[in-house]
Amino acid sequence: MAGAPLRIEVVCARPGRAWRLTLALPAGATVADALAAADLPTKVPGLVVQEDCLAIHGRTAAPGDALRDGDRVEVLRPLLVDPMQARRRRARDA
């Protein structure tokens, strides 16, 4: 049904705590719209949302990506170490 509201979930996990917000957004909403509606920086202490740390159901997303009903927008933590460098370091140390 065109124009029906979208049910979207926005999630953010930090060590020791996770936040999950369920939103109803208009059809055509984007990841940026969901983030604005969730207003996570006021709920998650110290959170700075980075554009390269967003996902929809575990797949990389951009702020302008369109959402579909039932999508889960994930605010990810930035990587502290490049995964390839970490593997090399573990192999060298083994």
Rank of each mutant, 00 (worst) to 15 (best):
L54E: 04
E51I: 00
A86N: 04
A13E: 13
R77S: 08
T30V: 00
C53N: 14
K43C: 02
R59F: 11
L47V: 02
L25E: 12
D33I: 00
G28R: 13
R59W: 09
R17S: 09
L47N: 06
R20S: 13
P83M: 10
C53P: 03
T42H: 14
L80I: 11
P83K: 08
A4D: 15
A38Y: 03
G46F: 08
R90H: 10
A34F: 05
D65N: 11
P63E: 12
V31Q: 02
R90F: 03
C53L: 10
G58V: 05
P45N: 09
A4F: 06
V10Q: 09
A4W: 06
V75Y: 08
V49S: 11
A62Y: 06
L79V: 08
E74I: 08
A37P: 00
K43H: 13
A94T: 10
A27L: 02
T42F: 02
V81A: 10
V11T: 15
V73L: 01
R59C: 06
D71L: 06
P5R: 12
P41E: 10
L23W: 05
R17A: 13
A38E: 08
A36R: 14
A38F: 04
P78Q: 14
L35E: 00
P5I: 01
M1G: 15
A94N: 13
C12T: 07
Q50F: 04
K43F: 03
R17I: 10
V73D: 00
A55S: 12
H57T: 01
W19R: 00
L25R: 09
G28I: 10
A2D: 14
